[in-house]
């Protein structure tokens, strides 16, 4: 524990008052250590998620069934890599080099989002991920437009803009499949059945805003449960109107507009994000391998560029 001297304590108090009243923070500004640490960890996890989110989808670039789908899926994955680039740059400017972030990621020392720890089995998964995983993500990301750290909020505009194309692409894949053969329709239903539990965990367990230090520093401004409710309100009716079902008998919209659902298994969420998901180790092993194979490029080309 480092002890705060009186001056640091004063500065911390006024910094907190500044961010809580809507004030913004720039890279070169003084910020409390706690703020910098939490912010760095949060944005790093966001970056890791974009980067790891590439893996469940990239195999399907090669299997995409038409030229148009192949182009759209490649563009989506390219956007995700681009988001990782934008996010790691912000992390780097906060003081943690990208190489260290990547080392920590493949060593399992830092986390990435739960949904990217699951396998993608069929082309139906490609549609469900692009439509619903990206829909869930855009809800959190839109809320981050109000983040107190301005460089993060600024890149979120580009990220949200690009995510909106992914949702369209995903919905188009889904609509084409549900209006296709019985087997194609079944691809969607089967994928939805598998993805629903991870989707319900996506926004995290409910933490009251007043107990959440991320909300206190105004890094986040949207409580987890509010994000999940927004997701359910926006997308469950869209799923149902296609004649598809969701594997939760309790799922319904109350008269007060609040959605009821079966409590997700939060222990599973914790286990999954700490590297014990069905595809966690395979994905990390793949990243380790691909990083080893291109290590010489970064070493020679980048190092010699000094």
């Amino acid at each position: 524990m480092e002890t705060m001297d009186a001056r640091t304590e004063d500065r911390t108090e006024s910094f907190l008052a500044h961010v809580q009243s809507g004030g913004l923070v720039e890279t070169g500004d003084w910020m409390p250590d706690e703020y910098r640490k939490r912010l760095t960890k949060f944005i790093e996890m966001h970056a890791n998620s974009e980067l790891m989110g590439v893996l469940p989808e990239r195999d399907w670039i090669l299997r995409a069934p038409t030229l148009q789908r192949k182009l759209a899926l490649t563009a989506k994955i390219q956007d995700e890599v681009g988001h990782a680039q934008l996010l790691y740059r912000v992390v780097e400017d906060l003081g943690k080099p990208r190489e260290v972030c990547l080392d920590d990621l493949i060593a399992g020392k830092s986390k990435f989002h739960n949904v990217f720890h699951y396998p993608t089995r069929t082309w139906g998964d490609v549609g469900v991920i692009a439509w619903l995983v990206d829909a869930a993500a855009i809800i959190s990301q839109k809320a981050l437009l109000k983040c107190s750290y301005a460089p993060y909020a600024r890149i979120m505009r580009k990220i949200c803009w690009e995510e909106s194309f992914h949702i369209l692409h995903g919905r188009d894949v889904i609509l084409t499949l549900v209006t296709g053969t019985d087997a194609q329709r079944e691809l969607v239903q089967e994928a939805l059945d598998r993805w629903w539990a991870p989707l319900m965990m996506f926004h995290g367990n409910p933490i009251p805003a007043e107990d959440d230090p991320m909300v206190r520093w105004r890094i986040k401004s949207q409580p987890n449960e509010e994000a999940r409710q927004q997701f359910l309100e926006g997308y469950v009716p869209q799923v149902w109107e296609l004649g598809l079902t969701l594997p939760d008998p309790k799922l319904r919209r109350g008269d007060d507009g609040v959605w009821a659902y079966t409590e997700p298994d939060w222990n599973e969420l914790m286990a999954v994000v700490s590297g014990h998901g069905p595809a966690s180790q395979e994905r990390l092993a793949f990243r380790r391998l691909s990083r080893t194979e291109v290590d010489w490029v970064a070493r020679t080309v980048l190092a010699e560029a000094a």
Binding site: Q85, L86, R89, K158, L302, A303, E304, A305, A306
Partner: peptide, 28 residues
């Protein structure tokens, strides 16, 4: 280490250049 380049973008002719983000690259 690669150099960092700040990137400014203009949305349309006549608009102001706005900071868009940055990239890391070995050279220009």
């Amino acid at each position: 280490m690669p150099s960092v380049y700040e990137v400014f973008r203009r949305e349309r002719p006549g608009a102001a250049m706005q900071h868009a983000g940055s990239i890391a690259a070995p050279d220009e």
